[in-house]
Design a protein around this nucleic acid. Structure first.
Lengths: 350, 350
DNA sequence: TTGAAAGCGCTAACAA
DNA sequence: TTGTTAGCGCTTTCAA
């Protein structure tokens, strides 16, 4: 790999001039020299050494994407379709802006902070971060941060300063609309299924309850179906949840993810429950599979890739020194009606 | 961020000594100094500046993962379950070996080579590379390369030197076994469905034909079902393929991916064809969805994550200066029998 | 309009 | 056992 110095030597000029041409600081360079340098750069296929440049400029051109793993994931986080789609959105924006993406997977904030400072990462995108984790990062990292689906309490909002943005979904509405749809279709005993109670699911559960309330369905504590979602527990856990649904006569389930919804439906089939005739199911996310599965899944659509893009775009803007107008963008989910909810009313009208 | 120099100053010693302790070159350092330095490092939470280190050592600690996109993918490459699972395997190995993964997505070899040299990437993992593309990379990049699913012709083998490995699947056997299984179950008109004719599919097609031959099924040119798999063409393309299957009375289809298989089955349902009673389907890959879909998909299983891990592990070994015993590892696929193939013989025996 | 030189933080050869 | 020093390739200030 040829260096600027060497180029300068061969061209009989100083490294400064070469560097200036490379950076388009051509105000003070004669057109003739510019041409000479540019031609030569082409000829020798000059490629800058980013390490040297970063060292000199104290930057890195790296956007770090931090995926904080929850313990007991049902699989490696990169194979989660949600994560994959979000990453896809992020990656494209970052690449086109001339930055490089480096993913970092860990459940250890200290490790993450180490990585961030060894590489001198220019900006950070955080996913799956709890409130206090995000704050710990912010305390030690003072460059731009974009979060996806972080739940930041009001009191903590200010702690993040203005080099910060969060891209979220209106999770309460999401569950509210999904649950309401089932209620209005005629379900009278509906459950909420999720595998944890993090910020997202807490909000969804709130929406779920509100929907029950609004449709005068009585809530019972057993309406909360807790899924154990590790790879080897998922199946048996589903089996017992479907049994529970049968036993107590549930006729609707709001699942916190399409993946769970489809696993649930599969288990229903295996236990002889028909979907949607015996039990209705609504998912969240609208993964590709939701459309292909039979019965096709009625679900709360969200544009995951867009979430990633928005986060990355906001980050790039901050890196360019722009000031963002707001600290949070909340997207609205959209109900996609397919085949997994039974319409009792329509049915009886016929 | 504190520097070695500053630490040395505060401790009243030379940067070399500090550096030596950091690198465990403690043979020639007094235990006392070691302790002093280590304690201080802890105290100030010293983190090395990788850019500086890389510059000085002419390395990068980066493993580049290059995903060469084919034009007209049905979606962003990171959302492809195959890619996601492979990346997951790679990422884990790389991270645990103390390296960092940087993905690079492009269809332009020149761009890839640029990236590789600006970052001074220590090793490369290539995916979706054709023979000649891989050679172009090799010509300009002389550090270790690991490929996944590359098709390297015999004549080119030697061009790769010994800093090279390829992890592949025995694709011919894969299609042979899958097709044979349908033939033996009693199908007499079976098709081969894929969306391109790259190295992998060429080999699979060969296996498919051999299986027809072995089971005395006559081959016709129309047995090759070409899927147009871009996001917006997939659906209509499937519709016409299923129509074609009906028209010519196909009773079996070997699909080059589970994704295609499931799309195909879905379309069959929509057109009133029963799977497997009217037509049998076999996929390849054994994605998670293969087990969950109904009918559960009979498929040729391959361990994708392992492919990624093997590639990464071999690469790391090369980076450690080891010499590999072989230039290629070919994994065997395994038939997983589920519900998407109809057993005519068993049926008529009953 | 061009060039010299210092410095980014770290490593490593060599000297003490 | 410890220290001095040059240098990795690039940027940038300041001088010519």
């Amino acid at each position: 790999m040829i260096t600027i110095k060497e180029i300068a030597r061969q061209l009989n000029m100083s490294p400064t001039t070469v560097s200036n041409v490379i950076h388009g600081k051509t105000k003070e360079v004669s057109p003739e020299t510019i041409k000479r340098v540019q031609d030569f750069l082409e000829e020798v296929e000059y490629v800058p050494n980013i390490n040297a440049r970063n060292l000199a400029q104290n930057t890195s051109k790296i956007v770090g994407v931090v995926l904080k793993v929850r313990q007991d994931r049902y699989s490696h986080i990169l194979t989660d379709p949600f994560v994959a789609e979000m990453l896809a959105g992020i990656e494209e924006v970052i690449r086109k802006a001339g930055y490089f993406m480096m993913t970092y997977i860990s459940d250890d904030i200290a490790e993450i902070l180490n990585y961030v400072s060894t590489w001198n990462v220019d900006g950070l995108i955080l996913f799956c971060m709890l409130d206090d984790d995000a704050i710990r990062v912010r305390k030690r990292y003072h460059k731009p941060i974009a979060c996806v689906d972080a739940y930041i309490s009001e009191e903590n909002e200010s702690a993040f300063g203005d080099q910060f943005i969060n891209i979220a979904l209106d999770d309460e509405i999401c569950a509210y609309d999904g649950t309401s749809y089932m209620a209005e279709a005629g379900c009278h005993r509906v459950a909420f299924l999720a595998d944890n109670m993090d910020g997202v699911n807490k909000a969804r559960f709130r929406g779920f309850k509100k929907a029950l309330d609004a449709h005068e369905i009585e809530y019972s504590d057993r309406d909360y179906f807790t899924l154990r979602s590790t790879k080897h527990e998922m199946k048996t856990s589903m089996t017992s949840l479907v049994k529970k649904a049968k036993k107590y006569g549930y006729d609707g389930v709001f699942c916190s993810s399409d993946l769970f919804a489809i696993h649930f439906i599969r288990e229903c089939f295996d236990q002889g429950l028909r979907v949607p005739e015996d039990i209705s199911v609504v998912g969240v996310d609208d993964y590709e599979i939701a459309e292909i599965y039979r019965p096709a899944l009625t679900t709360m659509h969200q544009d995951i890739s867009r979430k990633g893009r928005l986060a990355a775009e906001a980050l790039i803007r901050m890196l360019n020194g722009e000031k963002l107008e707001r600290r949070q963008i909340v997207l609205k989910p959209e109900l996609i009606v397919r085949e997994s909810v039974f319409d009792f009313k329509k049915q009886s009208a016929e």
